[in-house]
Design a binder for these strands. Structure first.
Lengths: 228, 228
DNA sequence: CGAGTGTTTGAACTGGATCAAAGAGCGTGG
DNA sequence: CCACGCTCTTTGATCCAGTTCAAACACTCG
């Protein structure tokens, strides 16, 4: 059964809400747990900026990118709702952070965090999850084929947006270009493209005409392709 | 200038100390911050084990591995002195943890950690560093060539063991087989082998006869190969 | 000394990259 | 409303870095 209805919850999860289109956040004066809003493509921080704040994704998604001198780029992490961005072992951010779609973030000053044990415990739990996710990501980058990587990514977005988990078919709004997917999965954009097309031909997914619209037609098979 | 002296600090950093050769730790009764010792190849925990403890590497090194059904393996993280192992978002460990050489660990019960704000702050700082290291690792897996990956790994071990940073030449005891390096770097063991041989032919490194002994003859050039 | 594990090297193959070019949303301004 | 330009996507053809298969070699330890 096909679900293309644009009112699908999975779509809403990443759909840009009514947000200012300027790149700068409309920020309240900075106090504990300030909530900020960013539009698609807005930069939250640049690699090399002084690392003063830690962010939690409340809605939407951000990507963390790192560059090599010759321009090779890796999207080293995609942070979805509930995840944290802004970690820095030294005094500057090592990656650049960019909103993938309309996104709301909660920001804490690093100093504040240190004073609040309960907050710290909560953040620690999130960091723990993120470390384990990064381990799974390393497995994907190091040992999975292009098809397995793409399937894994689609399932990750599905998991973040699913309401009716028993549905066989789920419609997603993946807020990444083919190039960004490639840069995240360690593949060329052409390979991502070909892989998605192949999955479509096999009836596993459907590729919508709207930007980023992908329908998971057979999540069971997709899960099989991803190695469960 | 060549430094092969086995008394080199970089070697000592990973040399197995006098440790019990049994796989089980000689553990004191479990209280806060128990220190445990493991011999090379000892398993600290298996993927799927109930996740009750968090470990800090005091001396030596451990690796975290993950398997795919068909036997493909990824060493998803190598944890050196000061790093943490045992993160688990759910109630079981998602990876297997194994000592790479004689290793001492400090173990905390997860419950204990929650009660100790100072400890938690310290662990959070370590987790933060690890997340950023994992981001750099993703860059390596996703966008670096075999040579860059191998160079990066060697420099990481050098950084962990260096005493005289101004030395042009550093002797390392890398506690990994070619296969383990490959499984960490997303390469076949043959490629690791060939890459190391090529680096040797170019005079960048020397490969000792003892297991794991590698001499960095030109760290500047090696750093160049790693993309700094 | 002999078995076992790990390493090295060679030869052939291949998954994914690269290069190239055409096609398709989509906003923008006339 | 259409034409234009932009960015993103798709598809094809060729290439190559790294894999796979295979076999010899070398430590290490009982």
């Amino acid at each position: 059964m096909l679900t293309v209805a644009s009112s699908n919850a999975a779509i809403r999860a990443f759909a840009p809400a009514a947000l200012p289109s300027r790149a700068t956040p409309r920020s309240a004066p900075e106090t504990a747990g300030t909530v900020l809003a960013f539009a698609r493509h807005a930069t939250i921080f640049h690699a090399g900026d002084p690392a003063t704040r830690l962010f939690e994704v409340l809605e939407g998604a951000v990507m963390l990118t790192q560059l090599l001198d010759d321009g090779r780029r890796q999207v080293v992490e995609i942070v979805l709702r509930g995840g944290l961005a802004g970690f820095a072992p030294a005094d500057v951010y090592p990656s650049t952070c960019e909103a993938l779609c309309g996104t709301r973030l909660r920001a804490w000053r690093k100093r504040e965090v240190r004073l609040d044990a309960a907050l710290q415990e909560d953040l620690m739990r999130r960091a723990e999850r993120q470390i384990c996710d990064l381990h799974g990501y390393a497995l994907a980058l190091g040992r999975m084929t292009a098809r397995e990587r793409v399937a894994t990514l689609l399932l990750r977005f599905a998991a973040a947006g699913i309401v009716h988990a028993h549905d066989r078919s789920v419609s997603l709004e993946v807020p990444l270009t083919r190039g960004e997917m490639g840069d995240h999965l360690g593949l060329s954009l052409e390979t991502v493209c070909r892989t998605l097309t192949a999955l479509q031909r096999q009836g596993v997914i459907g590729i919508g005409k709207r930007h980023g619209e992908i329908v998971l037609r057979d999540t069971r098979r997709l899960r099989g392709l991803a190695g469960q």
